[in-house]
């Protein structure tokens, strides 16, 4: 479904991804964990075309977003096809990135109408159904500035779902939230996992990763150090590397 093969990425002199390969199957929930600076967010951003890779290949649903050209340099898909391909991906950001000048409802309807050319009625029905799903129907006409962080993040999840992505990505979705608000967002993600949605979650929430993810990928210094079923990677027989990381993360 989603595949990164030997992806390299540097910011200036600093190598952030040093040959990362990951694979996400349909219906799978993958948690990517690791310290700050391990490259986990950069990997997710590369897969969502928010960063350009310096080398390697990324495939979404069998189609190459980027692949090495004849000279080995990465070649991206052409603009029009690229946009169509990226519609298969949905993304939820750490700081929500809702449109502050739109009401909650319009945050959800505008992208559907502008990008998917849905009618106002259709977009509205979809939006209201998804707001109900994240428990925010009654906030449809509020502006994002009047919502709590947890509510904003749930709206952002609903907005991403409005576009019917095949793969939903989360970039540290709870890092800006206090523990209580974190729980309300995590329970929404947990509900999505139960629907067997394909999801990639970059997170610091170790308990959440163990409970919800099918697979956990642990990254360190721009490399995948561990990749396996959540119970194995985070379970009783977890490795030294995970123990050290978890110690720092107050596990």
């Amino acid at each position: 479904m989603l595949q990164a093969i030997n992806v390299h990425k540097s910011f200036g002199e600093t190598g952030v991804l040093k040959g990362v390969s990951v694979r996400v199957s349909r219906g799978e929930v993958v948690a990517i964990i690791g310290r700050s600076g391990s490259g986990k967010s950069t990997l997710l951003r590369c897969m969502n075309n928010l960063e350009t890779v310096d080398g390697g290949e990324i495939r979404i649903g069998g189609e190459a977003l980027v692949s090495p050209g004849p000279d080995g340099k990465p070649v991206y898909k052409k603009d029009g096809e690229l946009r169509a391909l990226m519609l298969k991906m949905g993304m939820v950001f750490q700081d929500y990135n809702l449109f502050p000048h739109y009401s909650v409802l319009r945050n959800l309807t505008a992208p559907q109408m502008l990008v998917l050319k849905r009618s106002a009625k259709e977009a509205r029905e979809k939006a209201m159904a998804l707001l109900a799903k994240v428990g925010l129907e009654e906030k449809a006409n509020e502006y994002p500035c009047n919502l709590s962080g947890g509510q904003c993040q749930r709206v952002a999840i609903a907005r991403a779902l409005c576009m019917d992505p095949e793969i939903l990505c989360f970039d540290e979705p709870t890092s800006a939230l206090d523990p209580q608000l974190t729980q309300e967002v995590l329970s929404v993600i947990r509900a999505l996992a139960e629907e067997k949605r394909t999801m990639v979650v970059v997170t610091h929430e170790m308990n959440f990763a163990r409970d919800v993810a099918d697979r956990v990928i642990y990254m360190e210094n721009g490399l995948v150090v561990e990749d396996g079923p959540a119970q194995e990677v985070l379970g009783a027989n977890r490795s030294e590397a995970i123990r050290a990381f978890a110690g720092e993360a107050n596990y």
Binding site: L50, L114, V115
Partner: peptide, 9 residues
Amino acid sequence: EACQVLGFT
């Protein structure tokens, strides 16, 4: 970035 991932031109 939000616009880009939502597919806006």
